[in-house]
Amino acid sequence: MEALIVVERLGRHGELLERQRHRLPAEGSLRIGRGWECEVHLDDPHVALHHASLRLGPDGSLALVDEGSLNGLIDAGTGRREARLEVQGERELRLGACRLRLIDGRLAQPAERPLDAGAVPSRLRWSEAFGWLLAALGSSLLIDWLGEVGEVRSSALLTGALVGGIIMLAWSFGWALITRLFAGEMRFLRHLRVVAIGSLLATTLMLVVQYGSYALALEPVTRFAYVGYWLLFAAVCWRHLKVMGRGHPRSKALAMLALAAAAIGLQSLSLWQPRDGAPQQARYVRSVVLPAVRLRPLQDVDGFLDRAAALEPELVDARSEDEESAESAAD
């Protein structure tokens, strides 16, 4: 009994680059290598002329056997070199620098699946992506409007939203070009959706930090908000990498976490490094907030005066030190 063998060549991120179909007779073999006589030709200098043979046994078993090559057969699952790999259903492996997937065509394939009743036509995908973009721009307009303390200038608000939209489109196009280079497709709309949702989440986080820190009188929320922003930025980049390809998910996640940790560490050093003899102070409230938003009770007048009086000795000592320093410098 002959077997239908499907040989797929995969890209670096697991995307399909090429597919070949071959008929393998009973107790026959399929040669794989760089030689012209091989049924599966691989143009790779790290592949031997006759690197391996795919053999069909009398019992119907399918196995890939190394034919004495220098670099051998590397199992994609374990990363170990093997002299023989059994193909049960399908098997991924590496020959030289080529990544292959071998599929036994005798396996039953799944039946056709019905289309979802609410499936969105492809032309509506543009509206979905740009809908997220408009939502992100709307949230940006909202936070800019909340930051206005004087007369609202519509031209300034619209200019800021326009600049933000151009930046998001350019960012998406840059990722689309990288995806085209590595995956063979632009996937611009998917990248646009990722950056738009990321911008919307960043605006939401900004509002939560601003109003939450004021409502609960928690100054550290504002001081350490940059940690959340960098983690969100790393998550957005991770989603962009997933749009490019689904391969190596753990490595991508670890790389983005390392990037966020490095950025958080550098900004922490910058914030805590004293300037002119005093540590930098973060702005507590960046815009006007309604008093009704505050959840923590306000301090009464007597408590405020007591705290001010308690600060007087420290101020006197600081003034004395400044006067002594000035006199020393004059001498």
Rank of each mutant, 00 (worst) to 15 (best):
L100F: 06
L70R: 14
A292G: 01
L290M: 07
G164S: 13
L93A: 06
L241A: 09
T204Y: 07
Q210K: 02
W171K: 03
M1R: 14
D302H: 08
A292D: 12
D43H: 09
E2T: 12
M206G: 01
R55E: 14
T204A: 11
A255L: 12
H22R: 13
W238S: 03
S270L: 15
T204C: 05
L137P: 03
A63R: 09
A176E: 03
L100H: 04
V163I: 14
L70D: 07
S69W: 11
S53Y: 03
V288Q: 15
V288K: 06
R80M: 08
R31Y: 05
E37W: 02
L30R: 01
L85D: 06
V195S: 02
M168E: 01
L142D: 01
R99L: 06
Y226Q: 04
L207R: 00
A136H: 04
S139W: 05
T222C: 05
L162F: 14
L201M: 10
S325W: 15
D66Y: 11
R125A: 06
T78M: 07
T159L: 14
Q210T: 12
S53E: 06
V120T: 06
Q280E: 07
L85G: 02
Q281L: 14
D306I: 13
G303L: 04
V221F: 12
L141F: 11
D144M: 15
L207H: 02
D302W: 12
V7I: 15
R91W: 03
D66L: 12
T222S: 09
H191D: 01
A330D: 15
Y229R: 01
Q299I: 10
P291T: 06
S69D: 09
M186P: 00
H41Q: 15
Q267W: 12
S122C: 01
G245Q: 04
S268L: 15
V227W: 07
A263N: 13
G160P: 03
D322T: 12
E92K: 09
A76F: 04
E219I: 01
G118R: 08
T222F: 02
H240C: 11
